[in-house]
């Protein structure tokens, strides 16, 4: 009798509060809660991802929801209750989906193709040389280019130069650069942030106003 009652109390069909959700998603997991969460994730993911998926959206979204559910269940203890549980779970699902799509998008680019050229670290000194000989560039402009090149060459590490080159000069997409540099998105962002800050501080130290510089370009 007690077991019957317990079982039926656990099998709810709606989960209003975070406490109810967390309780249901902790082991022993309430399968109805999982099914309901899956359904909601799928419902949200479809409009969120449809513009990135050209075919078999339903299947793709179901796979993503499944992978996201496993992550939600694995990490349920880390949910801080600072939003609705569904919002937190959807965040995990959206990242899961977009990460998967980015991997697919750049799947056909092999690591070999992504290996930087031997001279890629030298790209800044090369550009500096060519800027001086470019006929359609004013002398003043060339001086600005030289100035920035010198800062880059003197202040940035090889890795920072490689990242700036890939992202800003070659205009490679972030996920490609992450793969190329064998790093992760967070580390790449921090590497480039540090580089941007170095350039900013050096310009300041030399009394160069970036706004004036931009006006002159």
């Amino acid at each position: 009798m007690f077991n019957w009652f317990k079982k039926h109390r656990k099998e709810k069909s709606s989960y209003e509060t975070n406490e109810e959700w967390v309780e249901a998603l902790k082991p022993p997991v309430d399968e109805r809660a999982v099914a309901l969460l899956r359904q909601k994730l799928i419902r949200g993911l479809k409009p969120a991802l449809h513009k990135y998926v050209d075919r078999e959206l339903d299947q793709f979204v179901e796979d993503v929801a499944q992978d996201a559910l496993l992550k939600v269940l694995d990490n349920i203890d880390s949910f801080r209750g600072d939003s609705k549980l569904l919002t937190w779970a959807m965040k995990i699902a959206v990242r899961e989906g977009l990460t998967e799509l980015r991997l697919k998008r750049y799947d056909d680019i092999s690591i070999e193709d992504l290996k930087p050229d031997d001279d890629s670290r030298e790209v800044f000194s090369l550009s500096m040389a060519s800027s001086e000989t470019s006929p359609d560039r004013s002398l003043h402009e060339s001086k600005l280019v030289d100035k920035v090149m010198t800062i880059i060459n003197e202040e940035l590490t090889d890795k920072q130069k490689q990242a700036i080159n890939a992202l800003m000069i070659q205009r490679l997409p972030g996920p490609v650069v992450v793969k190329q540099m064998d790093t992760n998105r967070n580390a790449l962002y921090k590497l480039v942030h540090d580089a941007r800050l170095k350039i900013k501080n050096k310009l300041e130290l030399e009394g160069i106003d970036p706004d004036e510089m931009l006006d002159q370009l």
């Binding site: 550009s127 500096m128 800027s131 600005l144 280019v145 920035v148 000069i169 800050l197 970036p210 931009l214």
Partner: peptide
């Protein structure tokens, strides 16, 4: 490969915003 004024602008702006 050449550092065009456009790229230079982008670079300076992104440094400025750091």
């Amino acid at each position: 490969m050449e550092l065009t004024p456009d790229i230079l602008k982008k670079l300076i702006k992104s440094a400025q915003m750091a």
